[in-house]
Design a protein around this nucleic acid. Structure first.
Lengths: 337, 337
DNA sequence: ACGATTTTTGCACGCGCGTGCAAAAATATG
DNA sequence: CATATTTTTGCACGCGCGTGCAAAAATCGT
C-alpha cells in the first residue's frame, strides 16, 4: 500500500487502491441504485472517507450526458417575491439532488446570451422566473436546444416549446374580482406590470372583463415598466393626484404584491389617505411583507412549494409533452381590502 | 463535405470539419487570448454559427481543472438584503465571465453538506453570504479543500483559511454611535442578530463599548435568532412592553435593516408609538425598502458593487495570502433617526 | 530572393467517470 | 455434491476539450 504525501485530487482510482477493489466498484458504492454488496460498500466508503474522496460531477456529467444541473434565469431583483421563489425552488431542487446555476439576466436584451451561458454548462433544463423574455428569445432558445427542457415558472405561457408551471391566473383573478365586488367596492383601478409576451396580461384582461360583464363598465387601468414598488409608488401619486373625491378609485387591484406595497406607501405617505378606509389595495403573491403589521395586505397566495415539487417531477420525467400545469392558490384576506 | 441530419451535440470536431481546419484551431477561436489569425477565426466562427456550436464548459473544466464557477451559499432568505447581494454578486461575476452555483443551505446543520455539494462540482471558490456557519464547518471545508478559495462576503472573519470581504464593522459602528450621540439620544437599545462565529458580534460589542467609553454606562441589548423582521417585531413588542415612560429607550440601534424594519413596524403597530418622535430606529445595509416613504430608515450603506468587483479580482488572482479586505461605507441619514 | 524571426497551426495524451457486457463469486436447487 | 441461478465485480472505450511542444506558414530584413 503506497502512501503519497500530497492528498490533492483524490480520484476513484485512489480509493479503489486503498480499499482493494476496482475503480468501478468505488463508483457503484456512490450510486444509489447499484448492485453492490453492503460489505464492500462499507469498505469503499471507509476508504473514501479516510482519503477525503468526493466524486467529480463534471466528469460524471460529461460521461453520462446528464448534469443534474438546472439554470435559473432571473431578471428582476427588485421584486421581493423573487427571493421567495428562489428559496422554494432551490430547496426543492437540492433536496432532490439537483443543483442550480443562478444566471442574472443583466439587462433587457440579455436573455439570449444568458441562455447561451447556461447551455455552455450543458444544464438539463432552464427555468425562467423572470418576465422580460419574448417570443424571439424563446425561439432562439428552442433552436439552440442544448438543454432539453425550458420551464417557465410562475407565469403562464402559450409557447408550445416551453413547459409552464403556474397558478391559474384567470381563476385566481376571477376570485379576486368577485371578492372586490362582494365587498362593495364600486370603482376599482387596475395596476398592471410590464407588457411582455410571457406575462400576457392575462390577469389584467381577466379582471377588466369580469368587471365589465358584471357591472357594465370597464375599470380604469395603468401600468408600470417593472415590478418595482418605487415605480408603483410614483405612478400612483401621479395618477391619483388628478382625481377629485367622487371619481377617485375606492380600491386599487395590483398585478402583484411588489406593486401593491408601493401603492400602499404612496397612498399613505404621498396622498395622506388611509388604507383601506379611503382607498383599499389588493395584491398577488403573498410576499412575507404582506403579513407585516404595517401592510396587512389582502392578496392571493400561490402554492409555491407544490409548484416547485412539480417542477422537479418534470425534470425527472422522461417525456416532454403535455407537461404544462396550472395550480390553484387561495385568497388571503387581511385588512388592506 | 458531409451533411448529417440530426444537428444534436455539435462538437469542435464538427466545426473543424466544416471550416476545414483542425479541432484545436476551433478551440483557439473561442479563446480570448490565443494566437490565431483574424481570418481563420472568422472562418471558424462562421462555421460554428451555422452548426450551432457552443463550447462544452464541462469538458473544458475537466481538462483544465478550472471551472470558472463559484458556489454561493445562502442560508437566510428572510433578509431582503440577500436579494441585493445576490444581484450585485451575480452581476459582477457574470459580466466578468464567472458562473454562479446557488446553494441553499437548507437548515442550520446543512452548511457542511452544502459545501460538499459545491465541491462535487469542483467550483473554483465558495462564497458564503450567510451567517450560520461556525468554525467546525470552516475547518471541514478547509480540510476537504476541493475548492481553492473560501470567501466570506459582507462579514468579517478572523479565520486564516478564509478570505473576508466586508465593510469595516468597527469603523461603521463607531460612525453610527457617534451620530446617535450627537443627535442627543440618551438611552439606546441594541438589537443584535444571531450569535455565530462568523458574525462575531463585532457591531454589537463595538457599539456597547463606544457608548460606555463616552457616557459611562452600558446600553441594554437584546438579540434574535435570525435576521428576520418578524422575529424583530416580536421581540421588540415583548421587550418594550415592560418599560415605563422614563426608562424606555429613545432609539433602537439594529444590527441590520431586516431587524430595523421589523422594529419600526412593531413600534408603530404594536406599541402605537411614533418613529422617530417616540423611539428612533437606525439600521445597517440600506436595503431598497429603507428608502420607501413608509420607512425612511437611517442606515449604513455598504459599497456592494465595489466589494463584488473586488471579489472577482480575488478570484482572478493567483496568490491566496493576505486577501482580506475591508471597505468603508457611508451613513445614509433619512428620517427614522 | 534567401535566411532569420515571428506567427500560426497540428497533434498525442490525459482530465475522471458511465455504460453495457462478460467473468467471477456467491447462493440456491435437485 | 454437482449444476443452475443470481448477485457481484472487472474492464475497454468514449464523453469533449486543454496543454505544451514541434512543424508549417507567414513576415521581415538586407
Amino acid at each position: 500500500m503506497k502512501k503519497i504525501d500530497l492528498p490533492e485530487n483524490v480520484t476513484a482510482d485512489d480509493v479503489a487502491a486503498e480499499a482493494g477493489v476496482s475503480r468501478w466498484t468505488v463508483n457503484r458504492a456512490f450510486k444509489k441504485a447499484a448492485s453492490i454488496s453492503p460489505a464492500t460498500r462499507d469498505k469503499v466508503m471507509a476508504a473514501a472517507q479516510s482519503l477525503g474522496y468526493v466524486p467529480d460531477l463534471r466528469a460524471a456529467a460529461l460521461a453520462s450526458d446528464r448534469s443534474n444541473l438546472v439554470a435559473l434565469l432571473v431578471d428582476d431583483f427588485a421584486n421581493p417575491h423573487k427571493l421567495v421563489m428562489m428559496e422554494r425552488l432551490t430547496r426543492a431542487l437540492r433536496s432532490r439532488g439537483w443543483d442550480t446555476l443562478l444566471v442574472n439576466t443583466l439587462d433587457r436584451d440579455d436573455a439570449g446570451s444568458a441562455m447561451l451561458n447556461a447551455s455552455q454548462r450543458r444544464v438539463d433544463a432552464t427555468i425562467l422566473i423572470g418576465i422580460q423574455f419574448d417570443d424571439e428569445v424563446l425561439k432562439a432558445a428552442h433552436k439552440a436546444r442544448r438543454f432539453k427542457k425550458l420551464i417557465i415558472f410562475a407565469r403562464t405561457s402559450e409557447n408550445p416549446n416551453t413547459i409552464s408551471i403556474a397558478v391559474d391566473d384567470q381563476a385566481a383573478t376571477r376570485e379576486i374580482a368577485r371578492y372586490v365586488m362582494e365587498r362593495g367596492y364600486k370603482n376599482p383601478l387596475y395596476l398592471a406590470g410590464p407588457r411582455t409576451v410571457s406575462a400576457h396580461l392575462l390577469r389584467k384582461e381577466t379582471f377588466l372583463e369580469f368587471w365589465k360583464n358584471h357591472t357594465g363598465h370597464v375599470p380604469g387601468s395603468i401600468g408600470v415598466d417593472a415590478y418595482d414598488p418605487i415605480l408603483a409608488s410614483d405612478i400612483i401619486r401621479q395618477t391619483l393626484a388628478g382625481y377629485q373625491g367622487q371619481e377617485r378609485p375606492d380600491i386599487i387591484v395590483c398585478e402583484n404584491d411588489a406593486l401593491a406595497l408601493g401603492t400602499i406607501d404612496s397612498i399613505r405617505h404621498h396622498l395622506h389617505l388611509r388604507v383601506p378606509e379611503d382607498i383599499a389595495v389588493i395584491g398577488f403573491d403573498d410576499v412575507p411583507q404582506a403579513d407585516s403589521p404595517n401592510y396587512r395586505l389582502t392578496t392571493y397566495r400561490q402554492p409555491l412549494t407544490a409548484m416547485a415539487n412539480y417542477l422537479v417531477d418534470v425534470l425527472e420525467s422522461a417525456d416532454t409533452s403535455d407537461m404544462d400545469r396550472t395550480f390553484m392558490g387561495s385568497l388571503v384576506v387581511r385588512e388592506s381590502a
